[in-house]
Amino acid sequence: MEGKLMKELAQNIEEGRRVALVTLVEVSGSSPGKAGDMMTVLECGEIMGTVGGGNLEYQLICEAKKAMDENRNMEIEYDLGPNGTLKMECGGKVRAYIKVFKEREKLVVVGGGHLGLELYTLGKFLNMHVAVLDDREEYANSERFPLADEIIHGNIGENLKKYRLNRSSYVVVVTKGHAGDREAIEAVAGREIAYLGMIGSSRKIRKSYDILMEKGVQREELDRVYAPVGLDISTGEPKEIALGIMAEILKVKNEGSGKHMREIKGIEA
């Protein structure tokens, strides 16, 4: 059972799901579970394994979901007597440890052209899960993106609507034209993700926003889009534009200031 549980845990981590591992590290006296019992918990509450069942297990599932929501590990103790927190009759005590496994950061490159190729390269360099979407077969294939974790060919808007995104997803829209960019933004805007960026001039973006709002996209959702995308550090070459975009993504991901390090940790004369 433990082997199957650990295999399932590894698969969930690899597929980008947030998951918690609950382990009973110490048990004294009477308890529904024994030391070493393990259980995995997904954000939706789905579990595998057991730590004894009953109210103890229910409370640990709730605590695991809370730990995932707060993105922190935790240790917790329960008195299983009638005067304890859980009001149980067992009379023992348990100490549990909850380890949260964060999702692997996912870079979703919407558009497989020159810029998309450079973003894919940087995403793999940073050990991100990289997905590439394009409606052109010649730009969405394993020959062009040999190390991509996912390559999705077809209608961009429809594919994005059904694509699984989460709080560790970073979406960059760099399709071949304005219409494709708008389809992508419409499909993603308002969803709970870490970052959404779109390439383009300020004039093009304003026009796209007007069209999107006419189609029902809320202005507040568009205000959260990083557009024009990236930091102002490039000459306009695709490699440098991609580097500016990834720098912005790292700034968001790591909650960095974007300042020069010498401004933050300057050396006094």
Rank of each mutant, 00 (worst) to 15 (best):
K124W: 08
E183A: 12
K176V: 11
D135R: 01
R136P: 03
V174D: 00
A194L: 07
P146Y: 10
F145W: 10
I199F: 01
A187E: 03
L133W: 03
G197H: 04
M198W: 01
I193F: 09
A131W: 05
R164A: 15
H153Y: 15
V130W: 10
G180P: 06
S168Q: 13
M128N: 01
D134T: 03
K161D: 04
V172L: 08
G197W: 08
D181Y: 06
I156F: 09
E192V: 08
P146N: 07
I152H: 13
K162F: 12
R144F: 02
V174Q: 03
K161T: 13
Y163C: 06
D149C: 00
F145A: 06
I156E: 02
N127H: 14
K176D: 12
V173G: 04
G197I: 03
N127P: 04
V171F: 02
V132M: 07
K161F: 03
G190T: 00
I152S: 12
E158L: 12
G190K: 05
E143S: 14
E158I: 07
M128D: 09
Y139C: 12
G180M: 05
Y195T: 01
G157Q: 08
I151G: 04
G177M: 09
I156H: 06
I156A: 03
E137S: 15
I152W: 11
A148M: 09
V132R: 05
G190C: 11
V172W: 04
V171P: 04
H129N: 15
G154T: 12
V132Q: 08
H129Q: 14
D149Q: 08
Y170I: 08
R191W: 09
E137T: 11
A189E: 02
E137C: 07
V132K: 01
E138M: 14
A187R: 05
